[in-house]
Nucleic acid binder design. Sequence first.
DNA 1: ATAACTGCAAATCATTTGCAGATTC
DNA 2: GAATCTGCAAATGATTTGCAGTTAT
Lengths: 156, 156
Amino acid sequence: MQQDVLRSELRRRKQRMTAQRELVLKAFADTDAEHLSSEEVYRKVLEKRLRISKATVFRTVELLAEVGILRKIVFRDGIVRYELVEENENEDQQIICNQCGKAFDFSLDKVDALIKKAEKKTGFKIDEVQIKFYGLCPECQERLERIRKATNSAHI
Amino acid sequence: MQQDVLRSELRRRKQRMTAQRELVLKAFADTDAEHLSSEEVYRKVLEKRLRISKATVFRTVELLAEVGILRKIVFRDGIVRYELVEENENEDQQIICNQCGKAFDFSLDKVDALIKKAEKKTGFKIDEVQIKFYGLCPECQERLERIRKATNSAHI
DNA sequence: ATAACTGCAAATCATTTGCAGATTC
DNA sequence: GAATCTGCAAATGATTTGCAGTTAT
């Protein structure tokens, strides 16, 4: 699958397929985590008792992003992670809880309509949209409400 | 305006109003740039021949974000910038050219509808949305098209 | 064979921290 | 006057780079 895409892209660029590049790609294919930082990729490879250097991970992950196999995502706190680019592109949006920090993906139609509108309005040719919703997840809403009540009865 | 908000927030927190905190706030009030990094704030203050240290800028900008006067934005390339929080919140979206890197703001209605839908779908209480469109601006579309034509006639 | 790749260690860059002296309330 | 700030310089942490040796084509 992605292996082959990588191989042919590398050929086009006169670059080489190496064990390390396979390892990094495999780390993404094997994990069930949504995103991986370079550090996490590095550890995942080491766990399998296979050798790689951090510098190579950084270089490889960047290469895979250039080629379009990975997408680079800079999180709100500045941490850089990568994820496999999938088919269902514009349908996965992120929603992040400001309280507990948990992030969830969910899909939302309507995004295509939004893109069309933005293209018409600006003349851009849009090929990617990132939507991030920030707010309170249901659990934190509840928890905060509980705390609020307890505090009120204690202090008033 | 923001000065007063800051003053009273500081009082609540038993913190102090200082010359440096005013300077940083003023940097945001005075600039016409959309966002400023800490580095940029630092330089803006120095330009006015006023003294401040980088460490203080980092600390102050973080404080202003906590207080809600600034919003921290981590850009796609990992650069951290801040902007004044304004009223017209959810209406300014960003559109960024992948080619020349220019970024524009523009407003788009429909966003409220999108928020409602997302809230219903996830149970979150959403208080902020960031939408970033990535694509090609009109100029780059033209330029690339011109280049493509020139290259084709040369090589075929 | 040779151009591309890797690992290592040193370099860089943004941000953070510890602390002594300055400042605000 | 005491707690809070600031500036400085050193520390940190993530990423990048230079280079000599290794590997894929």
